[in-house]
Nucleic acid binder design. Structure first.
Length: 494
RNA sequence: GCCCCCAUCGUCUAGCCUGGCCCAGGACGCCGGUCUUUCAAGCCGGUAACGCGGGUUCGAAUCCCGCUGGGGGCACCA
C-alpha cells in the first residue's frame, strides 16, 4: 500500500475533543505506518455552528499534540481546497450528476412538515420513515411547488429491493445492511449547502482517500454513503470504525466526566508524548507486556486490524501515571522543557515567576528539588506553591507539628541558619543536626516542624534542598514565625 | 420501536482468527512491605476477570446458538 491516504475531518464547532484527537491519531498512525499521507479537512458546512476561531484552535491543538498533516486548509495540497465551504461548486456538480442519473431527486417537503410526520410516527409508536411523497413528482407538480416559492432539498433515492450493502470493516469485519431500513435521505439542504453524508463522499473520493478511519457512530452512515459511491460509479474507500471513548459511567465521554477538550489537558501540564502514548493504549496495545512506547515504535507497530471493537473507558489515573513517567524522563533529557511547562502553569495560577535570568534560575532550582514529584505540570502548584508565595498553612499540619516543644528548636535553627557560612544543603543539614544534638533530641523532632513552618505542609521535597532554594532570608523568617506559632503566640504573616 | 455494534480483573488490555502451553499474562488503581526527614518515585509482595444459559468437542476464554447487559444510529448535525 504505497499510496495510502487517510484524513481527519473535524467540524470547527468546538475545541478538539480527546475522542477526536484519538481518532485522528489512529488515522495518522495508519498513514505514517504505510508511508502515506494524512490529510486534514475542515467540515464546516453547518455554518450556524462553525467558526473560524475554532478551526484555528483545532489546528493549534493538533500542532501541540505533534500530529502533522501533509495536506490541509493551511498548507494546501493538490486536491484542495480543504475547507468544505470552499468546495461548493464540487458538491453542486455531483448533486447534478446524481439527479441526472436518477439517483437523487428534489424534495419539496418543509422541515416543519417533516417534523410533523416524525412526531406523528413517534406518537403512534411506529418507526418513522420518510413518506416518499416527493419521490415521483411530475414536472407540473414540481413547477407548482416552485411557484409557491418552495426551495427543494435533494434526496437520494434508495432503490427498492436493492442488494444488501456489504461493508468489510477493517476493525469489525463484515457488516451487512439491508437497504430496506434505509430511508431516502437528504444530501443537499434547500439552501443548496451539502450535508455530511454527501459532502463526505464527494470529498473522500476527490481527495483520493484510501482508508476512512472514524468512530463507530458513523458505522450506520456507511451504507448510505456506499449507495452514493455506487450511484456515482466510484470505488468506495476501505473503512475502519473504531469504538468511542466512554466515561466512567459507560456513557459517551462528555463534559460531565471532566475535561474533554485536548487543550484542557495541555493547560494542566500533560505532555503531548504522554497523551499519544496513552491514546495507543485505548482499544489497542502494541505489545502484551509493555506500556511505554516512542512514537516511532507506535508507527512501526500499528496495525488497524489489531484495534479493538469494544469501547474503552477514559482512565485519567492511568494517563496521570503515564504522564509522570514522561515527566521524569523529560527531567533527565530536557529539564528546560519542564521549567517552561511549569512557568506557564504558575503564571496561570497567579504565581508568576520573574521573567529575568534570576527568576528563571530560581524556577530551575525549584524544579531541581520538586521535579521528580511532578506527575502533571500543575503539581508544581500543589507541591511547590510556597516557593512562590507566602506559606499557606495546612491546619492539620500545624496542629500536629507546631507544638510548644518545637518552638525553641525552630528558633535555634533559625539562628543557626542566619549564622551559617555558605548557604548550601550540606551546611544546612549539619546545622540542623547540631541543633538537635545540642538539645538531645532526634532530628525528626525538628525536621517535621521545620517543614511545616517553611512550607505549610507535611509532605514535599527534601527539607535541606528546599531550604537552600528558598534562600536564607525567607527560611530564617519563616522558621522564626514558626517558632512563635509553636509557642502559641498566634502570629500573623510576616 | 427499528437497524447496527460490543462483552476477559474496578479500569486499560494480552490471549480468541489457527480450541489443549491459561485453575488466564501485563499495566493503572488499591492493599501491605522496603527505602527515607515527609511525600512522590523505585523495589518486593498481594488483591482482582473469561456476563448468563445451552450446544459442538476427549478438551472452550477461544467455535455455534440463545439470553442478558452496554453502546451507537434512525436530523435540511457532524
Amino acid at each position: 500500500m504505497g499510496s495510502v491516504r487517510t484524513r481527519y475531518a473535524p467540524s470547527p464547532t468546538g475545541y478538539l475533543h480527546v475522542g477526536g484527537a484519538w481518532s485522528a491519531f489512529f488515522g495518522w498512525l495508519f498513514a505514517r505506518h504505510h508511508g502515506g499521507a494524512f490529510i486534514l479537512r475542515i467540515e464546516d458546512t453547518d455554518r450556524s455552528r462553525s467558526t473560524q476561531a475554532y478551526e484555528a484552535a483545532i489546528l493549534e491543538d493538533f500542532r501541540w499534540l505533534g500530529l502533522r498533516w501533509d495536506e490541509g486548509p493551511d498548507v494546501g495540497g493538490p486536491v484542495g481546497p480543504y475547507r468544505q465551504t470552499e468546495r461548493a461548486p464540487l458538491y453542486a456538480r455531483y448533486a447534478q450528476e446524481l439527479v441526472a442519473r436518477g439517483a437523487a431527486y428534489p424534495c419539496y417537503c418543509t422541515p416543519q412538515e417533516l417534523d410533523a410526520e416524525r412526531k406523528a410516527a413517534e406518537a403512534a409508536r411506529r418507526p418513522h420513515r420518510y413518506s416518499g411523497r416527493c419521490r415521483a413528482l411530475t414536472d407540473a407538480q414540481r413547477a407548482a411547488f416552485e411557484a409557491e416559492g418552495r426551495r427543494p432539498s435533494l434526496r437520494v433515492r434508495v432503490a427498492e429491493g436493492a442488494e444488501p450493502i456489504v461493508i468489510d470493516d477493517l476493525i469489525r469485519g463484515r457488516v451487512v445492511f439491508d437497504p430496506e431500513h434505509l430511508d431516502d435521505y437528504i444530501i443537499v439542504r434547500s439552501d443548496g449547502t451539502p450535508l455530511y453524508n454527501f459532502a463526505n463522499v464527494v470529498d473522500d473520493h476527490l481527495m483520493g482517500i484510501t482508508h476512512v478511519i472514524r468512530g463507530s457512530e458513523h458505522l450506520s452512515n456507511t451504507p448510505k454513503q456506499f449507495v452514493m459511491y455506487r450511484a456515482l460509479g466510484w470505488e468506495p474507500p476501505a473503512v475502519a470504525h473504531h469504538p468511542t471513548i466512554l466515561g466512567a459511567d459507560r456513557k459517551k465521554l462528555s463534559k460531565r466526566h471532566g475535561d474533554t477538550a485536548l487543550r484542557d489537558y495541555r493547560d494542566q501540564g500533560f505532555l503531548p508524548e504522554a497523551m499519544l502514548n496513552f491514546f495507543a493504549l485505548m482499544a489497542w496495545h502494541p505489545e502484551a507486556e509493555r506500556e511505554v512506547y516512542s512514537i516511532d515504535e507506535l508507527i512501526r507497530g500499528f496495525r488497524i486490524e489489531d484495534v479493538g471493537a469494544a469501547s474503552p473507558i477514559f482512565d485519567l489515573e492511568k494517563l496521570t501515571w503515564l504522564n509522570g513517567v514522561y515527566m521524569r524522563r523529560l527531567l533527565e533529557a530536557d529539564p528546560d522543557r519542564v521549567v517552561e511547562l511549569c512557568e506557564g502553569i504558575l503564571r496561570r495560577a497567579g504565581l508568576p515567576v520573574a521573567e529575568d535570568a534570576a527568576g528563571r534560575r530560581y524556577l530551575r532550582g525549584v524544579i531541581d528539588v520538586v521535579g521528580e514529584r511532578l506527575k502533571v505540570g500543575r503539581d508544581i502548584v500543589v507541591y511547590g506553591d510556597f516557593f512562590f508565595r507566602d506559606v499557606v498553612f495546612d491546619t492539620g499540619a500545624v496542629a500536629q507539628y507546631l507544638k510548644p516543644q518545637a518552638a525553641p528548636l525552630l528558633a535555634a535553627y533559625a539562628d543557626a541558619l542566619a549564622a551559617l557560612g555558605p548557604f548550601e544543603r550540606g551546611g544546612i543539614e549539619r546545622a540542623l543536626r547540631e541543633v538537635c544534638a545540642r538539645a538531645g533530641v532526634d532530628a525528626r523532632a525538628l525536621v517535621h516542624p521545620a517543614r511545616v513552618a517553611l512550607t505549610g505542609k507535611t509532605a514535599g521535597p527534601g527539607l535541606f534542598e528546599l531550604i537552600e532554594v528558598l534562600g536564607r532570608e525567607r527560611a530564617v523568617a519563616r522558621l522564626r514565625r514558626g517558632a512563635a506559632m509553636a509557642a502559641g503566640e498566634g502570629v500573623e504573616g510576616p
